[in-house]
């Protein structure tokens, strides 16, 4: 049993365990999944809106044959949806993405990676 049945139903191809739970190859995939769950719970978008955004990415040409890019598509769909809903802009999202990359590079081992660590901020 899991609490996210509707999300699972609206997300064709989601990698799942034998028990039907989603499985994640890397922690960021679970974070992307969890954010999507929360946004839906808050009523930011409906499952049909989500399913449409996700399908759009999943059926783009150039997908990997082994579907290992499933969560890349997931993140692309989520990014698209939040910009279409005017929650943020692509520019701002790209800017923040680059900032997080610089922050990670600038963070010494043993310290938490924080956005403030970006030297250009």
């Amino acid at each position: 049993m899991n609490a996210f049945e509707p999300l699972l139903a609206g997300s064709p191809g989601l990698p799942k365990s034998n028990e039907g739970d989603p499985v994640f190859a890397e922690p960021w995939q679970a974070e992307a999944f969890a954010m999507t769950v929360r946004l839906h719970e808050k009523g930011v978008f409906s499952w049909s809106e989500w399913a449409e955004a996700l399908s759009h990415e999943l059926y783009k040409p150039g997908r990997k044959a082994d579907a290992s890019d499933y969560f890349d598509c997931w993140v692309a769909a989520l990014s698209r949806l939040v910009t279409e809903l005017s929650i943020t802009s692509w520019d701002h999202l790209d800017h923040l993405t680059q900032s997080w990359q610089r922050a990670a590079e600038a963070t010494p081992h043993g310290k938490p990676i924080l956005l403030e660590n970006d030297p250009q901020r």
């Binding site: 939040v82 929650i87 923040l96 993405t97």
Partner: peptide, 10 residues
């Protein structure tokens, strides 16, 4: 990084 960016914005 994109996931972190989304988390920050949201």
């Amino acid at each position: 990084a994109r996931v972190k960016a989304l988390e920050t914005v949201l």
